[in-house]
Every structure is written in C-alpha cells, then in structure tokens.
C-alpha cells in the first residue's frame, strides 16, 4: 500500500502545465482512442508513452508496471474470450475433444481479444497520463471550475486527505502487530487483520471527533473551502506537439472511412 502515483503526480516535469490543458488533451485522446481503428490506438499508446516517460520524466519501470495491470486483467479473460465449447461435433481438426464436448478456438473471439487489448492499452495510457502528471488537488479544482456538485467535491477532498492519514495508521498498526508475533500463521493472520479493521474504524471516528471539534471552534458553517495559489504556465512547445499530433491521429482515424466513400 504505497501511493507512488500520487507522489509522482506532484514531482513530474509536466507539473507546471495548466491542469485544464493536460486533462483536456487526455480527454480528447480518450474519445479518439475509443472509436478509432487499432493502428491509431497503438499510435496513441506509443505517443503517450513518450509524453509520460520522456517529457514528464516518469521512470519507465513504474510506467511498465502500471501497464501490466490492464494486461493482467486481459490475460485473465482471454480464455473466456477465445475458447469455445461445442456439442455438435468436431468441426476443425485441431479441436480438443473431452467426452462429447469439443473445445475450439473461436475466430470471432480472437478478433475480440485483439480489439479489447488495443483499446484497453490506448485508453489506460490516457488515464495514466492524467494520473501521473496531474495531482488530485488540481483535478478537484478543475471539477470545481466545471461546476460539479459541491458535496461530491467536498467528499472527494476529505477522502483524499484522510486516505493518507488512515493509511499511515494502518501501516503503524501492522508494524506493531508484526513486532508482537502477528501474521505468523493463517489463524493469527485473520486475528490480526480483524483487530486492524476494528481499530481502524475506532481511529477513524476518533479522527472525526477531533476534526469536528477543531472545525467548530473555528466557526465551521457547513462549507469547506480549500485554498490554492498555484501558478501554471502554458508551454508553447508542448501545445504545438499536442495539437499537431492530435490532428495527424485524427486524419489517420478518419482516413479509412473517407476511403470507403
């Protein structure tokens, strides 16, 4: 349980770009990636890898590990996508028979698996671009500018803050338990975890009491406001590359349709 992504979002080299540019760029690519053919999706993934690793300076190893997550999920569902079961008989010589059933590789499934893989990688790259370059606080400010309901923004901000507090609490509890012979076998694993969760709930409510006392004593009237004084600077070089590159990808995406006309 570490928040590597979050700390990278604060320290990457694209941090000073306006969040609206970064998020807008990602959303535009996202929409394109959803509807474009596989080649363009691959281009999007490669281009964003350049942005993330070269321009933002995210270590390639970490980015690779992140891309492994959608890949794992894809691998898990590949058998379900491409394996078919048939009772009607042996259609293909390579089918494997098991009793009266025949297992076969379905052509439709293989195509499906390919499209899903490319789409998942292209769209995950867009998501990762935002995650790795834009801190959550910036995203919240953006949501505020876009007139999201206040209660959702407030809840997100509070959760964001306390996730780190509670994560620290859990790590401390785990260390304490491990140094007192916790987690030695399965039985004690369950016991230790049970204690952690209940203690965590207790600490959560303790935090709540302390915080609400603090807020009330400072004249809390039901409105939570967060202050930010961050200055952002647009970078012409990146803007030109983003817009020109997007234009090229767009042309590549609509070219097959124009060809058909």
């Amino acid at each position: 349980m570490h928040h590597q992504i979050d700390s990278l979002a604060y320290t990457n080299q694209l941090r000073s770009l306006p969040p609206s540019h970064k998020v807008g760029f990602a959303i535009a690519l996202f929409i394109l990636g959803f509807v474009s053919p596989m080649g363009v999706q691959g281009a999007i993934a490669l281009w964003l890898a350049i942005w993330i690793i070269l321009y933002a300076g995210i270590p390639a190893k970490i980015y690779g590990q992140l891309l492994l997550i959608p890949l794992t999920f894809w691998l898990l569902s590949v058998p379900a996508l491409i394996l078919g079961v048939s009772f009607s008989g042996n259609v293909n010589p390579v089918d494997i028979a098991w009793g009266s059933r025949y297992f076969y590789l379905s052509q439709q499934g293989i195509t499906q698996a390919q499209t899903v893989l490319m789409r998942a990688i292209a769209l995950s790259s867009c998501l990762y671009f935002v995650l790795l370059t834009t801190p959550f606080a910036d995203i919240l400010n953006l949501l505020k500018a876009w007139r999201f309901p206040t209660i959702i923004i407030e809840l997100l901000a509070l959760m964001y803050r306390f996730i780190f507090v509670l994560t620290d609490t859990v790590l401390e509890l785990v260390t304490a338990q491990k140094s007192r012979l916790g987690y030695r076998n399965r039985r004690s694993q369950f016991r230790s975890l049970g204690i952690i969760i209940s203690q965590l709930l207790w600490r959560t409510l303790e935090n709540y009491r302390a915080c609400s006392l603090g807020l009330i004593s400072r004249g809390f009237n039901g409105e939570l406001r967060f202050w930010s004084d961050r200055q952002y600077q647009a970078n012409p070089r990146y803007m030109v590359e983003a817009i020109a590159g997007y234009f090229v990808l767009l042309l590549l995406a609509i070219f097959p349709y124009v060809d058909k006309l």
Partner: peptide, 24 residues
C-alpha cells in the same frame, strides 16, 4: 448537520483503506 460531512469523508477514506488491505 454539517458535521456529518466530515464523518462521511472519513467513512469513505475508511472504506478505501479497507479495500486496499490484503487479506489471506
């Protein structure tokens, strides 16, 4: 009851940390 906002935020953070725990 504006105070409950805090409680909700904390409950949300609790749910997140809970779902990030590893269970055998």
């Amino acid at each position: 009851n504006p105070n409950l906002k805090l409680l909700l935020g904390l409950a949300g953070a609790f749910s997140f940390v809970l779902s990030a725990l590893k269970i055998p």
